[in-house]
């Protein structure tokens, strides 16, 4: 039976650095394995579409520009992504990876949550096509 068992801890805590930090001013470094934003390498992709098929949250859209020459553009939605890394696991050609860079996801606009990966000319081509009236790119749903 005792009272104030925590007294020692109190004294210790008072004289040591606090465990919390002033968040936006000081930041911790993300660990190496952190599953952050998805990165896509269009050079290696063969378009098996497995990543799109098994994605639990429909965060990946692989748009075909030219199937024979293996030119694909990936539309990635970080706002839907659950960062499970299943796509990375599935990809046999190592063209998908998760970087540990993006780990704060807040934005005032929707644009930040639509990321295009691929060769620049392909993206430009796709965007142009989507802008034309009449031909509708599959909507984001």
């Amino acid at each position: 039976m005792a009272i104030g068992v925590l007294f020692g801890d109190l004294v210790k805590a008072f004289f040591t650095k606090p465990a919390t930090q002033n968040y936006p001013f000081t930041k911790t470094i993300a660990p190496e394995r952190l599953r952050g934003k998805l990165v896509y390498d269009p050079e290696k992709c063969i378009g098996c579409m497995l990543c799109m098929k098994d994605c639990p949250s429909n965060a990946i859209e692989l748009l075909t520009v030219d199937k024979i020459n293996k030119r694909f553009v990936m539309r990635y939605h970080p706002d839907r992504c659950v960062f499970c890394a299943q796509c990375v696991q599935l990809c046999r050609f190592n063209c998908l990876n998760m970087s540990n860079s993006l780990w704060e996801m807040a934005s005032t606009s929707k644009e930040a949550f639509e990321v295009y990966y691929g060769r620049e000319e392909d993206i430009a081509f796709l965007l142009e096509r989507a802008a034309q009236p009449g031909i509708n790119e599959p909507p984001c749903e």
Partner: peptide
């Protein structure tokens, strides 16, 4: 987090 890459899931 270091082990798997995520704190929760």
């Amino acid at each position: 987090e270091t082990l798997s890459g995520s704190r929760v899931h």
